[in-house]
């Protein structure tokens, strides 16, 4: 058993400094397309390339509905004039309604409502040494009975509707619903069909939304901080000064 103690010590501290300092390591986030000025033909071509209507034009500018982006990269790859792209991970919008009591201690019940596994996997990473959500007072709860936050991933399938509603009802008030991932926000590639609701807002009232397909762990962490009033929501429109994606 001593080997594990040594092994644990030898690994050192890996945990991100976020939210106290921005995380700059490579590969922590896929980024999102950003709004920007583009020539009209290019703009229309780009909008046509987007399979989920995440891109649109407003007054000749490219605007991005992050809630719909599925990271297909069609607007940046294989396109002559790529869309502006921006890294970062503070994407969550909405507001925390829990009040001050829960700022430093929040229990989260994660519910999979038809997720492809990626969002769920990113939530799992949060508990790992790199993100260690426990250091911020966030805990994954095995039961909704003791949970303050219902963190829902997946588009909300018809056959999970009952279980999801039951889980929400089982929670004590005040309670917050965080919808994680493009599928949970807009249905993503699955859209809305007879088996799948096109986002969980058709089932539950959503307080905080995290875009991304899947949102990186830091984006989910940002959403939790937002829900407890410890972070500001994402800006309405991301700035154009994005990096270029290959």
């Amino acid at each position: 058993m001593t080997q594990w103690v040594l092994e644990g010590l030898r690994a050192g501290i890996r945990t991100t400094r976020y939210p106290f300092a921005p995380e700059t390591a490579a590969g922590v986030s896929p980024g999102l397309p950003a709004a920007g000025e583009l020539a009209r033909p290019d703009l229309e071509r780009l909008i046509a390339r987007c399979p989920t209507a995440a891109l649109a034009s407003a007054d000749g500018r490219l605007v991005v509905d992050a809630r719909r982006c599925v990271h297909c990269f069609r607007c940046v790859r294989g396109s002559d004039t790529p869309a502006p792209w921006q890294g970062g991970y503070e994407w969550a919008t909405g507001e925390g309604t829990l009040g001050k009591t829960f700022t430093r201690s929040l229990h989260i019940r994660v519910v999979d409502a038809g997720d492809c596994g990626a969002c769920l996997h990113e939530v799992k990473q949060l508990a790992g040494p790199y993100y260690s959500l426990h250091r911020l007072g966030f805990f994954i709860s095995p039961t909704p009975r003791q949970a303050d936050v219902l963190l829902v991933v997946g588009p909300g399938t018809d056959q999970m509707r009952e279980a999801l509603t039951k889980a929400y009802k089982a929670m004590p008030t005040p309670r917050t619903v965080i919808a994680v991932g493009t599928c949970a926000l807009s249905g993503g590639v699955f859209g809305s069909n007879f088996a799948c609701g096109g986002g969980i807002s058709s089932i539950l009232p959503v307080d905080v939304e995290v875009p991304g397909n899947p949102p990186p762990p830091l984006a989910i962490l940002h959403a939790l901080l937002l829900a407890t009033g410890r972070a500001a929501p994402a800006a309405k429109e991301r700035q154009t000064a994005g990096e270029r994606m290959p």
């Binding site: 590969g27 896929p30 990271h71 990269f73 790859r77 996997h121 899947p214």
Partner: peptide
Amino acid sequence: LLRLSGSLTGHRYLFG
């Protein structure tokens, strides 16, 4: 490995 995938390909789960 996820970060490696992310930094190499642009997506942590090799989408797109």
